[in-house]
Design a protein around this nucleic acid. Structure first.
Lengths: 110, 110
DNA sequence: CTTGCGTATAGATACTTTCCTAATTAGGAA
DNA sequence: TTCCTAATTAGGAAAGTATCTATACGCAAG
């Protein structure tokens, strides 16, 4: 949760997530759109990955990043639950609709 | 949106929000629970206020802070919408289901 | 092995955030 | 006015973050 919110506190990182919402992308693809040096993009992606907000998939020499919408929603809904119970209801609906047994907040850290 | 996410990126600030979920509080009340100097708490509350996540209400020499659950939820749902359409549906439900004034700063007593 | 491409890491610098103590502002009581 | 309490603002030290350039790693092709 801590990492997720810190990751989302950066405008470039939120913009990266919005780009990834359109589909998986390589680092170079993203860097080309942002007028930012590739190492910076790489760092931002690492932060998002550590926060569990994106997935990595190696394909040859490329690394394809894609959004981890489940963890993204789960983090925010979990935080929101104490303040608005609807978030909890929706979170439960999401899980049952996907036939997923439990929350999967940390699937990248194995 | 930018301010909201930056405000939420701080663990002390999220803990303050969680405390405020139990009801309105003065700055001194919060500072007493956090083992943090009052000026620091005051600063955090100012950040939360600038982000629209809490309300202020002056009562004599006290300033009572309370949570702005609507804005909190709205910020996160708006951000989530591109990634999970359910957030949008829920956000719309929240707005139409509300038959009462938005700001109820004093519902826990006083 | 070397070459070339895509990506990640290292080091340096500038900027921002966080937290404290000390001082200031503001309200209420005498 | 003077005094007490509540909250903010000011100043500064320490830690964290963002970004760049330069370099190293990993994979594919020859």
């Amino acid at each position: 949760m801590e990492r997720a919110f810190k990751a989302l506190a950066s405008t470039p990182r939120r913009r990266i997530l919005n780009h990834l919402a359109g589909g998986p992308m390589t680092v170079g693809e993203i860097a080309a759109k942002f007028d930012m040096a590739m190492p910076s993009i790489s760092k931002h992606l690492a932060v998002l990955y550590e926060a569990g907000l994106v997935h990595q998939q190696k394909r040859g020499q490329h690394i394809i990043y894609s959004i981890a919408a489940d963890n993204l929603a789960n983090s925010l809904y979990s935080f929101l639950t104490p303040f608005c119970p609807e978030a909890r209801k929706l979170n439960a609906e999401r899980k049952t609709a996907r036939h997923e047994p439990e929350e999967r907040v940390d699937e990248h850290g194995g």
